[in-house]
Nucleic acid binder design. Sequence first.
DNA 1: ACGATGTTTCGGGAAATAGCGAAATGACCT
DNA 2: AGGTCATTTCGCTATTTCCCGAAACATCGT
Lengths: 129, 129
Amino acid sequence: MTSDPLRPLVDTLKTLAHPVRLRILALLHAGELCVCEVAEVLGLAPSTVSEHLTGLRRTGLVREWKVGRWVHVALSDEAAVRPLLEALWPLMAGAEAELSRDRAQALALRCDPCDPTACPPARTPKEPA
Amino acid sequence: MTSDPLRPLVDTLKTLAHPVRLRILALLHAGELCVCEVAEVLGLAPSTVSEHLTGLRRTGLVREWKVGRWVHVALSDEAAVRPLLEALWPLMAGAEAELSRDRAQALALRCDPCDPTACPPARTPKEPA
DNA sequence: ACGATGTTTCGGGAAATAGCGAAATGACCT
DNA sequence: AGGTCATTTCGCTATTTCCCGAAACATCGT
């Protein structure tokens, strides 16, 4: 009956309209991460990050999959949201300083940024080569 | 100090993330209106519409100006928001039915859609030609 | 000056949102 | 099985958003 046809768009916009979630998207724009890394970089409780990611997944903006004990997150590549994401980056230009700081910190966390399956970086006992 | 650089973008997205405000923008996409017409079409209290418009104006999405007793509203033409607005229309495609119903109702209200200064249409004692 | 009309501001109540810590879940490892 | 770690769910509080009606402004017409 009252099946508001604007609902999906509003949901997506609402999801975008939060600084933490924008930072997450910008972070993922540089490559996938696992939840704990995102939490570490943003300085937020894991439960908080988990909830933000739930919203981003609900609206199809990101996708997640399990890798062992961890959950990896990456930007969605669905045709429905891609254009929206692409339109987003230029709008974030004004926050480059903060965002590149985030990216740098994420990079520092990863032991091997080239291997997507290598996950919890600083906190794992690493095996020397 | 904590001058969140994402703030302006978040504000704009928050403003977009509401069905009523999206309907207002879509309505204005077809031409300027005065506040009372918007209220009439949307079936909301004038005070409610006024508050929505305040938000849209605050984020630069629309501009307003007084015409006699009425306040006219139109989409902004600022370079800062134009691309965002243009990106918006295709995303609203799914709600065409509702939106064109709105447009039709707005058109019906206006006595002379060609004259932007002719305002409160149905409710004014009109002078016959 | 007065009344009528369009608009905005203000106060308040209902609902949604954001954050956290604690507890529950799932997966690894020994 | 038991322990550890990543993640999610839950319960809670604080804050914000939404909508309205009443009252305040503003502007026109008489």
